[in-house]
Design a protein around this nucleic acid. Structure first.
Lengths: 340, 340
DNA sequence: CTGTTAGCGCATTCAA
DNA sequence: TTGAATGCGCTAACAG
């Protein structure tokens, strides 16, 4: 049988309340008494039963998710996963609220973040827009004791506790190698469609992509990046125009808004054998993968990201450790054969 | 505030004990009383607090893992993950025991399984060897009320509750497409190294591989399968011999024992440009991927499989639902760029 | 500074 | 067939 608070109280010759004070590092315990209790804890190998503690405390975890208000399938999916998590709230003792902020708008994000410090959530998950002022508030909130995890897009250089998203440099490098290997001996130009160079995830994907291209596939030349703002309409326009270039042999779409990309490909490139790699598995990209418009999809599993963010935030709130390997968000690579 | 047993007792005008009897479908409640309670439960939207219930019951989950005694890195890794889970046991209320059985030996597996029915674990996770007699015991145990999940290798057609492993047909198909696309316009022969056609996962990978090869890459011919019994020494011998064939342009290793494969490749194929796809990320395959001996690795994450098996078994033991998407074991595809 | 006591939501005796 | 009382491991008033 595992030792309980009673056992350590008996071993240390003190009462339950004192043991509790030591366990929860509350004040009002003499140094010597504290030492006695700590010794007993160590010797009996006591580990606190978190479930029982939460029951006694009636603890719930008020969590806030901050997301950009973007009208693309990936963000819709992320939203859906958060709603799923809200449905599980009773069982998981969470109390989750989602807040939307204008996309690519550091000032708006900062405003919401500052408002949050008043309502005292026990954890914050946010899709970060990469800007100094955002980094500043985040650092301030972390200092004030709020657990913060970044979601999907990281905020490197800030004090955020954890990042629940894929390694985007690795994603870009992987895209480059797949494209290069699939193209084999072919030479030509590569079009790159991004959302915005303002978000770190897109910048990092591009960085990884260009470096592997330069190192290993010198016969493929990258054209100037098209910024589609993750908007299907803009993406369609940009890609349709770019496809006028007959030297293009491949496309890398590293952001969202792939509906527009796919439409442009079907209109302008039916007769060409382009190799296309895109990010994010959605209804649209899935269909395009199956009908061979797209050759491979790199994906981050929004459900895993949300669940991981919640686990990490709860653990941080309790001062507990996380299973690192479990919280690593993997880059999914989908060909038409291994679709879920 | 969520409704508790007290609330439904008050609403139904009965005592806690009666509510409990209804909740746990125990006998000794008049039909009309039962109905009253059930109505109250429905109307208040009561959901049981599993943590509190487990606390009151002092419940633990005795779980058994059955693994083949194979000396390859993948099985070592699986073992390590189970040991990690054992370390987490106190926090997760599990009590995990691992049993090794001779590999590819249905009779031995049946023996262990039969012995288990006496010690009453509340869940069994097993790497299945695919044989009718195994299917028979599994079905018997399931009928007797034991939750059973298959791990890594499934037992299709049996009554096992869940399979914690990858879709191996999809894995084989994916390997074929990667190999075919990487090879591009090249023609030639493909060597296939398997462990044993006695285990379902290997048979399924081969099946998926050959079908995509036949459908989409007719210029690549598959040579007769080499059965290395997941043993590095045997694998080395077989592959070294096979590489005498100068027409070979690619290799698909769908089992374990890749140490032997890699050694053979380095000895016999330094001067050739083979495209090689292997399964399972280990220290050896990782190094080979980095030094370009292997071009891609398909992997199943043993840690996820073990944690998933535990979650599912606990849920089944409690008659609870699982998050299906979370329990789907994904096929990892690693190029040298996205290694963890 | 330290101890007593009640109670979180549920299960389980033991009586009635 | 039903109910009252007790306890699981822990926290939190409230006394001393």
């Amino acid at each position: 049988m595992r030792p309980t608070v009673h056992d350590i109280a008996a071993a240390a010759g003190v009462s339950l309340a004192t043991v509790d004070r030591v366990l929860n590092q509350r004040p009002g315990v003499r140094h010597v008494t504290r030492e006695k209790v700590e010794t007993a804890i160590r010797e009996l190998g006591y580990v606190r039963d978190v479930a029982a503690a939460n029951l006694a405390k009636g603890r719930t975890y008020p969590l806030v998710f901050i997301l950009p208000a973007s009208d693309n399938s990936f963000m819709h999916g992320l939203n859906a996963e958060i709603r799923q998590a809200i449905l599980r709230s009773p069982a998981e003792r969470t109390d989750i609220r989602a807040i939307e902020v204008p996309a690519f708008d550091p000032a708006a994000l900062v405003g919401v973040l500052e408002g949050l410090s008043r309502e005292k959530p026990c954890g914050i998950a946010m899709v970060a827009t990469d800007a100094p002022e955002v980094r500043a508030v985040v650092d301030r909130l972390v200092h004030a004791g709020f657990p913060i995890v970044t979601l999907v897009s990281d905020l490197t250089g800030s004090l955020r506790h954890h990042y629940a998203g894929v390694d985007n440099i690795a994603a870009g490098r992987t895209a480059a190698r797949l494209l290069g290997r699939f193209l084999g001996p072919r030479k030509g130009k590569i079009a790159v469609l991004a959302g915005s160079m303002l978000v770190r995830d897109h910048r990092e994907r591009l960085e990884g992509f260009t470096s592997v291209m330069a190192e290993e596939f010198p016969d493929l030349a990258i054209l100037p990046v098209l910024e589609g703002r993750d908007d299907p309409e803009i993406a369609h326009m940009l890609v349709a125009k770019a496809l006028g270039n007959a030297d293009i042999v491949g496309v890398y779409s590293l952001g969202a808004g792939n509906r527009g990309l796919i439409r442009a490909l079907k209109e302008k490139a039916v007769d060409r054998t382009l190799t296309v790699i895109a990010h994010e598995l959605t209804a649209h990209t899935r269909a395009a993968l199956i009908d061979n418009t797209i050759d491979a999809i790199l994906n981050q599993n929004a459900g895993h990201e949300v669940r991981s963010a919640i686990r990490v935030l709860k653990a941080k709130a309790d001062g507990l450790a996380v299973i690192e390997a479990q919280e690593r968000i993997r880059l999914d690579i989908f060909l038409k054969d291994n679709l879920p």
